[in-house]
């Protein structure tokens, strides 16, 4: 219905094709692990980037883990928030619905991913994250302050033009979904394995959650 992936799925029940991150957190009643955080970031930015290229949806902030949907095949998409339900007509201009910048979407995604890592912890407790993941989230959540600019639409233009200097400075400014994906890929021993690896992590997250749900249902 959202145009962002396969048909919407309901709550965990055994035959669904997608689970929300919120459902996963509630079912396990514990935070996601670091590898899952890297994977959800990478996969979600991948789908957002693809959707942006197709211009199939307005940019929306991520308001809750309920919006982040992990699909059976390992894809991760962003569903509309309750208040954003219903696509605007194709001809609707900026006045037709609230748009936001790519950096704002990334910022909101970073915040929600952090909250998923922090799930269940008390207010006076803080999870010790590995420095690279903390740095990723820190930069995602502070992107707008990074350099005060909100460059948009340059990602296709600079495709393939990065050099080592770009690689070195990338951590200082996350401005696009692609920047996030590059950082996530750099976290792996072999960057080229990022698409397969992160898809497999999300596929496993879905499968294990469904397995747990089935088990708990049987116990009940």
């Amino acid at each position: 219905a959202s145009g962002e992936g396969p048909p919407e799925a309901g709550a965990a029940g055994g035959t669904e094709d997608a689970l929300s991150l919120e459902e996963i957190l509630r079912l396990y009643n514990q935070p996601i692990n670091e590898e899952q955080a890297w994977a959800v970031c990478y996969q979600c930015c991948g789908s957002l980037r693809a959707a942006a290229a197709r211009r199939r949806q307005p940019r929306r902030r991520v308001r809750s883990a309920e919006q982040i949907r992990i699909w059976r095949d390992g894809a991760v998409t962003l569903a509309p928030a309750a208040g954003d339900e219903g696509e605007p007509p194709p001809t609707a201009g900026k006045l037709g619905y609230s748009q936001c910048t790519e950096t704002e979407v990334i910022e909101s995604l970073g915040i929600i991913i952090y909250k998923a890592l922090d799930y269940g912890l008390k207010e006076n407790e803080e999870r010790e994250l590995s420095p690279p993941l903390e740095q990723l989230i820190d930069h995602m959540a502070n992107t707008i302050e990074a350099d005060g600019s909100n460059d948009e639409g340059y990602e296709a233009a600079d495709e393939g033009l990065e050099d080592e200097e770009d690689e070195k400075r990338k951590i200082s400014a996350i401005r696009s979904y692609r920047d996030v994906m590059k950082l996530c890929a750099a976290h792996l021993p072999t960057e080229s394995e990022a698409p397969n690896h992160y898809q497999a992590v999300c596929r496993a997250l879905f499968a294990e959650t469904m397995e747990l749900h089935t088990f708990l249902t049987k116990i009940k």
């Binding site: 396990y28 952090y114 006076n124 407790e125 999870r127 989230i137 959540a141 294990e208």
Partner: peptide
């Protein structure tokens, strides 16, 4: 299954949790 352990420390005023909280 598939879940790793993690360390918990006291929340720090300059830590990422505090920074994220300020944003929300």
């Amino acid at each position: 299954k598939g879940k790793s352990l993690y360390k918990i420390k006291p929340r720090h005023d300059s830590g990422i949790k505090a920074k994220i909280s300020m944003k929300t």
